[in-house]
């Protein structure tokens, strides 16, 4: 089996275990974090803080390389412009996140746990991504 597929699976697994450990896979906890004016649960600030602390070190090290440890080219975004789709898209994402408490990763974890509501959210999310693909496709003819 292709070593890139093995590592992708293993990293996805670790990512999912991290989401479960952190509490982020639970929409009620996510909404408790987003509810600044209510009884605020600050836990998720530590999730992001912990992840970025490790990430700063790791990406700092990775960024100096041209190839990954397995020999793949590093595919890192290079754009630095702040454009309208970035800002409006991110604002829209936050609204959707706040409506149900799901973002893409935790939705997949909850789906794996057998949550029907996560399956419905994930299908709708994939449909939304499909809408983007259709709208972004060059016009016919």
């Amino acid at each position: 089996m292709n070593r890139y597929l093995v590592s992708a699976f293993a990293v996805g697994l670790l990512f999912g275990l991290g989401l479960l450990t952190s509490g982020m896979a639970n929409p009620a906890k996510v909404l408790g974090f987003l509810d600044l004016a209510g009884a605020w649960d600050p836990s998720l600030a530590l999730v992001m803080g912990g992840a970025v602390a490790v990430g700063l070190v790791g990406f700092g090290f990775a960024g100096k390389r041209a190839l990954s440890l397995l020999g793949a080219p590093l595919q890192v975004p290079t754009r630095r412009d702040i454009d309208r789709p970035l800002v409006l898209g991110s604002l829209g994402f936050g609204i959707g996140w706040g409506l149900a408490g799901f973002c893409p990763g935790p939705a997949l974890v909850a789906l794996g746990a057998g949550e029907l509501k996560a399956a419905v959210f994930t299908l709708a999310m994939l449909a939304g991504m499909g809408v983007y693909e259709v709208l972004q496709r060059p016009a016919w003819g």
Binding site: S7, A8, F15, S22, M48
Partner: peptide, 28 residues
């Protein structure tokens, strides 16, 4: 509701996964 240790540990695991993915697969 505050769960500082599991949330910090989970965050470290998520960060580790992200770092491993760029280091091994070269992907975000």
């Amino acid at each position: 509701a505050f769960t500082p240790l599991p949330s910090l540990l989970g965050g470290l695991l998520i960060g580790l996964a992200a770092v491993l993915f760029i280091l091994l697969n070269g992907r975000i």
